[in-house]
Amino acid sequence: MFDSITLGQYYQTDSVLHRLDPRVKLVGTFVYLISLFVVDSYVGYIVAALFLAAMIFLSNVPFRYIVRGMKTIVFLLLITVCFNLFLTPGEVIWQAWIFKITKEGLTFAIKMAVRLSLLILGSSIMTLTTTPTQLTDALESLLRPLKKLHVPVHEISMMMSIALRFIPILMEETDKIMKAQIARGADFESKNLIKKIKSMVPLLVPLFISAFRRANDLAMAMEARCYRGGEGRTKMKPLVYKANDRIAYLVLLAFAVVCILTRIYF
């Protein structure tokens, strides 16, 4: 039932990207996202798109799978494009009734669409190749300097990893409860808005109860294993940079430099 929500869900396979240190991927995604706002020319976008294509190729995730996940946000993308297309003032090139398209609007809309697509694809490449646990480990490790400022880095990352961990569980649970209620004749596909909202009750009540029960169980299990926060806690798999990770940082640096150059020269 949730086949369409593959956007950014970890895809299990073996690839260079999967084996990379999660910190590299986190920093890489960050650099990539910023670079998308640095570049402002078609050449720049081509560079960014090529870089993304290379990453997709390296990730070993089937392109079909990535695109299927994109479907969920096409709507969002369309709205953004329409707003830009119709509401940007400038030189009018087409007009009908109250709608008019301007030259500036057109360029802006295209750029926006490209930028947003690259942005979403870029960040989903990270989550497709990195497990939530690795990701929060990386975050904790990268944010460690903030501990000096009394930011509860460990607690934040623990909360994040629990939240992320529970997404698939709750999704599975939703699927199960939904099926059980459909078996009792519930109709979740009604077009009528009021009926639709009412039909959510048999789904949401059991879901919340189950979420609270799980939270309670988890808290109990953590306490039973003497969890006391991050103080003095060691890791089973400490993050260590390897040769590949250093190369990856160099590639990233090169990419960032090229992006800045396209901004200056094009």
Binding site: K176, I177, K179, A180, Q181, A183, R184, G185, V201, P202, V205, P206, I209, S210
Partner: peptide, 15 residues
């Protein structure tokens, strides 16, 4: 309605 299915842990569907 003709083929009734009681899921595993059906008590989780009470609401």
């Amino acid at each position: 309605s003709d083929v009734g299915l009681v899921f595993q842990y059906p008590e989780h569907q009470l609401f």
